[in-house]
Design a protein around this nucleic acid. Structure first.
Lengths: 153, 153
DNA sequence: ATAATATTGTTGTAAATGCAACACATAAAA
DNA sequence: TTTTATGTGTTGCATTTACAACAATATTAT
């Protein structure tokens, strides 16, 4: 039929397949362990803690979700009492910033511990070296793709 | 704050970020070039051509979308006249199989040519060796994760 | 000063996705 | 034979997501 390389052999397509396994694993582990937060909420909290005084749009750019989506995730985190939002200024512009509440820190810590314990029970698939190489190459790919892809965030 | 490694540094999370760039690139290229099909429809056609006489559920397992989703993608491809579906048996069970129509092959070929030309204009981000290593490591990871993740397809 | 532009966040809406429930047919077990 | 389990596909629904439009404010240009 087609002598040329198939699209499904491409790096981009295989990246999508692999990411689906990773995402499914995350969702299933969070559900199985009865976490009070979703993977996305956990990731958002992780990024917020890593970047003190971050505003919503900066957070959106880091988690690669659009502003609407990011705002909604923060709404649920706020409703659950795990973050508090307040208005501040960045470059003389009004922005909404957020902090993790004590309750949020408690939940996050607990989730992290359970997660670590559970993940350690999963047999090692890649060597440390393979993992490092993989992460570095993906980072390089992301840096390059930033020039080509408009992310609209 | 947290001395331990952050979740956002993890392989799984970074895979998700990277896949988002890849997916956005694909969607944007398909839209920009005014293709009559989406990335998902194109991928599905590619897989169908690679696996002659494949049934819907087998296709679903390969593209990692659930049966409902896969059926809907095939509905739109059928409406557009790019595939034809027929009932057959597999292990004495009724299944729906599909073939690409002549019109479908024409569109696919045209899309492939335009795609190839367009992608060649994107500067090379990774070396061939990096790409091969990346694909191989991701494949190894997927094989390992298959044991851990229930995909419900 | 007024108008045009840009940044940040929210709301609305359509599309994509995942999952459970269902229908239907076959295989296996009682 | 009747019952139970399994495999395949569809429908319905709730969630997630992307994208456009909007509001509010600040910056820049005219």
């Amino acid at each position: 039929m087609y002598k040329t390389k198939h699209f499904t052999d491409s790096l981009f397509y295989q990246m999508e397949l692999t990411a689906k396994y990773c995402r499914s694993l995350g969702v299933q582990v969070f559900a199985k362990l009865n976490f009070p937060i979703t993977v996305d909420e956990y990731s958002a909290m992780d990024v917020i803690m890593l970047h003190d005084g971050i505003c919503q749009r900066e957070l959106a750019k880091l988690i690669l979700k659009d502003r609407a989506n990011t705002g909604r995730i923060l709404n649920t985190l706020e409703e659950k009492g795990y973050i508090e939002r307040f208005v501040d200024t960045k470059n003389k512009r009004l922005v909404r910033k957020m902090i993790i509440t004590d309750e949020g820190k408690k939940i996050f810590k607990k989730a992290s511990d359970i997660l670590k314990e559970h993940l350690s029970s999963i047999p090692k698939i890649l060597t440390d070296e393979e993992k490092e190489t993989l992460k570095n190459t993906m980072k390089k790919l992301r840096e390059g793709l930033k020039q080509e892809v408009e992310m609209k965030i």
